[in-house]
Each structure stands twice: as structure tokens, then as C-alpha cells.
Design a protein around this nucleic acid. Structure first.
Lengths: 212, 212
DNA sequence: TAGATTGTTAATCGATTAACAATC
DNA sequence: TAGATTGTTAATCGATTAACAATC
């Protein structure tokens, strides 16, 4: 593909690193100063080797016998993931799920700010969701440009998902979190993470059967 | 581990198979009778080899030159995943997210039925969410036993997640879908799928940065 | 110092892809 | 028949784990 500033990171590593961050944040709250690869491995059910390999992708250097400095680790990981206070996200779809996410406290806690909620149903226009007002899809592109929004959550029914994705991509959004049960086709330059709860449930169903 | 009836299936396979099911269901609605490994591979961005290997784990046999019979494929995959009409799930946590999921239409469409919604806040007791009433945590174990519930969705704040998981496990639930930003510790006999939207957003953040 | 832990290289393991005979 | 597709085995690729010297 195109030449990247960053070394190519395997996606299992990224997934684990975002788990490390959650864990490290909790340790920091508790006042812990140091964490070792063994601590992390035990807490997350991994091997020490895996943790150390993952850490080697970051620019965190550890100290023999003590491990990694918690605060520095947390800062470096947050920077690595591109997470910073006030990273803005918009939500498309103001149904039950879209509204719930707009009000979801964990987002703010994890550094995200909801930059707007949109719906194609003009009956919902201007209705309040927390401190936000539901906006029309016509204003989407303008909002994305003005506020320099890069991330969007798709919380619309499956049939509408592709059309919404197209609009978002055209408006310049760079990453989509897809909650709809639909496979999205997007240009290579746009990242998509699937988070389809109904699909997860099916996977769970299967996992349960496997261990019976 | 314990001896299983089923051959051990790699989890990437399970994840892909649940994607096949979504796709196949749509094809069936459209009246398609046959689907080939090439069709599936193209639709989901995989190689034909991968699709055929995955299919070989199922008990679907294909026909040279035509591929797989759509209806039979769909039925076999649904059975393989353990998904059947009316598979019951309970939701713990009647905050924004829990309520939204209780009302979420995609669940019913995908064969799941919400068997109850629970919250520890007695102020919410008996409040209506769609056709359900919010129940107290004290009744959880009874409901799980009577209705033979095997799956639960955890939609409570991170601090409460482990306690809720313990209660669910004790009540006899076999699979947990965790929406809380907390790492759950459960016995090996219980399956856990993580579906933490805030974490997914962070992963997305990172993915976006990678391709800049 | 002795012991614990990092950082990195090499070995292992498993998943994906390629290849191809069998089949319709 | 010729061509397309399955089903399976072998080759490749990449991720995980093990091992160990360096370090504090």
C-alpha cells in the first residue's frame, strides 16, 4: 500500500494494546507506579512473551526488575492509539441504539466527545438527546468539515447502512464503527471496525455450544 | 480440556462463519438458490481457499460447478452456530444501553428473544421497557433457572461488571456478552465475548492513524 | 551479589493460501 | 466434452511462545 510513517502493526497487537490501556488506567487510578509484563500477562490471560513483544512495538522502555512506569506507559499507549481527550465522533442514526450511545458515559470517560447525532427521519429533527439536537443528514457534510470530524458510528438499520457509509466517506470521515448487520464496502483509505452486537451474540451461542 | 463432541474449531473460523450467515440470509431473501465459494469470498473480502476450508468444518457439501445450496447452507450454519428462533438472552443493566438493546430490532430478526432485563437500582423496578418490566437482581437466579437462560448481556458500568458476572455464572448462565470496559474473570466453562464499544472506538482511532 | 525482569532472536505453532485431482 | 467448482493436501506465511543474554 502507501508508505506509512509508522511500522506496520499486526492487528492482534492493536487489539491487545487497547486492552492494556484499559487495565493500566485502572492501575494508575489506584496509585500503582510500576507494572511488569508478568502483571499484564496474568491480568489479561496472555504470556509474558506476548506482552513484551507487543510493548516492543510501542516506544516504552522498561526497567529491569521493576517493569514499566505506569504513567509513562499510559501516555505512550494513548498516543500510539491516537486517543486524546476530546477526540470527536459523530453518530448516524437516532434510534434506540444511536441515542443510547450519544448518552453513553463510557465514551467521555475514555476520551471521546460526541460531535453530533444525525437521522434521515425529518420527524426527529431538532429533538434533544442529552445536550445535542438531532440533525438532518443534509447538514452532515458541513458538520464533518467544520469540526474536522474523522470518526463516525453507524447505528442505522442494515438496509440503510451502505448509503450512510457512502455519505460519510464522501464527507471526509476516515474511520467507521459499524453497528449495523451489513457488510460495508468502502475505499481502502477508510478504516472500518465491525461491532455488530447481534453477530457477537451468535458467536457467543456457538462458543457456548462448543464447551458443552 | 474436557472432551468435546464437536471437533475443535479455530475462532477465526467461527467469526467468519457468522458473517457467512448474515450474507447468506440476504441472498436467500433475494431468492438466490446457489452460492459459490467465489461469491462468498468476493462479498466478504476473503480468498476462495479460506471459504472452502471454513465450509469444510461445517457439514455442508457443495456441488461441483454450482456451489452450495443456499437454503441448506443457511440451515446448517444456523445449527452449527447454535442459533435457533427464540434463543433467549437476558440483559443486566437498564441504563441507556441496556434499554436500547432490549428494544433493538436486529435481535429478534436474528433469532434472539430478550428473556428479561434486570437492574440493581430499586428505583427502576417494574418500570416498562417495551413489553418487559425491569426486574430486581434478586430474581435473576430464579428467572435464569425457570426459563433455562444460557446467555446474558452485561450492560452495567465497569465497576459493577465483575459482580454481575459472578451472579450470572452462579445462576447458571453459560455465555456472557460483555459491553462493560472491564476484564471479567470467569470459570473456563463460561464463554465470554467482549463487545466494548469504547474500546472499538480506540481501535478505530489507531487504524485511522495507521493509514494516514 | 543474587534474583528478577527486560528486550530480542530463534523455534514453534497455527492459520491462510496455493495447488490440483475429482466431479458434475 | 470443456470448463467451473468442490474438497483436500501441501506450502507458505505470520503470530505466539521459548530461550537467553543484558541489565538493574
Amino acid at each position: 500500500m502507501n508508505n506509512r510513517r509508522q511500522k506496520e502493526i499486526p492487528s492482534p497487537v492493536i487489539r491487545r494494546v487497547s486492552k492494556y490501556l484499559i487495565h493500566i488506567e485502572r492501575l494508575e487510578e489506584k496509585g500503582r507506579k510500576w507494572v511488569s509484563s508478568k502483571d499484564l500477562a496474568d491480568a489479561l490471560g496472555l504470556t509474558r512473551s506476548t506482552v513484551r513483544m507487543d510493548v516492543s512495538y510501542l516506544r516504552v522502555s522498561g526497567v529491569s526488575k521493576r517493569g514499566y512506569a505506569v504513567e509513562k506507559f499510559r501516555k505512550t499507549v494513548a498516543k500510539f492509539l491516537g486517543v486524546h481527550k476530546g477526540c470527536k465522533v459523530i453518530i448516524v442514526g437516532a434510534g434506540n441504539l444511536g441515542r443510547a450511545l450519544a448518552l453513553h458515559k463510557a465514551f467521555a470517560q475514555k476520551g471521546f466527545k460526541i460531535g453530533g447525532i444525525f437521522d434521515s427521519d425529518s420527524g426527529l429533527l431538532n429533538e434533544k438527546v442529552g445536550s445535542l439536537r438531532i440533525r438532518s443528514m443534509d447538514t452532515l457534510s458541513q458538520v464533518v468539515r467544520r469540526q474536522k470530524i474523522r470518526l463516525a458510528i453507524i447505528a442505522v438499520p442494515a438496509q440503510a447502512a451502505q448509503e450512510v457509509a457512502d455519505k460519510l466517506v464522501q464527507a471526509g470521515v476516515r474511520g467507521l464503527l459499524n453497528l449495523a448487520c451489513a457488510d460495508l464496502i468502502v475505499p481502502n483509505s477508510v478504516a472500518v471496525i465491525e461491532s455488530r452486537i447481534a453477530m457477537d451474540l451468535r458467536e457467543l451461542c456457538c462458543a457456548v455450544r462448543m464447551r458443552e
